[in-house]
């Protein structure tokens, strides 16, 4: 079942067009990763879903219904949650207050959900009365994701959740993403650490210059020599240069 679909989306900020026709979709139960070079429009594509930039063409569909150019505060109410790369927690609020804010648009009792979130992120339970700004980078990401999950969203959008984290925390975050997904939430994620991200993804898209360049399952993209050369870097690239 198709949860989210971007159909040939065109748009940008002010006079600067960044997306020149991007199409992608996320099906129920999937983890989908967007990778690409800097300035390719990865984060912008995600923001397009969330109504953070003006789309001049194309459409965004949620469960088959158009939400194109819906402002963010309304997109949330449709059940889409977005975790920006930075500034994704309220630092002076406690961990629990952050999670409560995540449930702001809920009118029903969110206490059971709060319990589930603490079960998913045990370190947060210990620190629930602590100001979120005092936590470590990895724990802040947990707060940010937990806050988004409070809504039991139809889909979760993550913008570079591992940016700025040490390799150890990075692994933890990818594990968390898998855990969230196993619990039933489809995820669309932008990532710099393309290799690790594709490793946990069902499918991936490669964006270049605001357009789709490649797409395929995580494995396909990992094994595609062109993609590997362009974006995966690391071991494979040095392997290649070794050969030459």
């Amino acid at each position: 079942m198709r949860v989210l679909e971007l159909d040939n989306v065109v748009g940008g900020y002010g006079d600067t067009q960044i997306l020149h026709g991007v199409s992608m979709h996320v099906d129920a139960g999937e983890i989908v990763v967007i990778i690409g070079p800097n300035g390719a429009g990865k984060s912008t594509a995600m923001k397009a879903v969330f109504g953070l930039l003006k789309l001049t063409d194309g459409s965004v569909l949620l469960d088959g219904e158009a939400i194109t150019n819906t402002p963010p505060e309304k997109v949330v109410r449709h059940g889409v949650c977005y975790v920006p790369q930075t500034g994704n927690i309220f630092p002076s609020l406690t961990v629990e207050e952050n999670l409560e804010m995540g449930a702001y648009v809920r009118v029903d009792d969110f206490k059971p959900r709060l319990k589930e979130i603490y079960e998913m992120f045990p370190p947060l339970l210990e620190k629930r009365q602590q100001a979120a700004g005092t936590l470590s980078g990895g724990q802040r990401q947990m707060v940010a994701m937990g806050k988004a999950l409070m809504l039991e969203p139809k889909i979760l959008l993550l913008d570079e959740p591992t940016a700025g984290l040490s390799p150890k925390f990075r692994g933890e975050i990818f594990e968390t993403v898998k855990k969230i997904n196993r619990a039933g939430t489809p995820i669309l994620m932008v990532e710099q650490n393309a290799k690790q991200a594709l490793g946990i993804a069902n499918r991936g898209y490669v964006l270049v210059d605001g357009k789709n360049r490649f797409e395929g399952t995580g494995k396909e993209l990992l094994n595609d020599p062109e993609v590997a050369e362009m974006f995966l870097g690391g071991g494979k690239q040095s392997h290649k240069t070794g050969k030459a």
């Binding site: 969330f50 963010p72 505060e73 949330v76 109410r77 977005y82 920006p84 500034g87 994704n88 927690i89 309220f90 630092p91 002076s92 609020l93 207050e97 804010m101 995540g102 702001y104 648009v105 806050k147 809504l151």
Partner: peptide, 15 residues
Amino acid sequence: RAMSDSPELARLTGI
């Protein structure tokens, strides 16, 4: 307090 921390995130949160 949340909005005082970050108006942008408050909006994204649906506040």
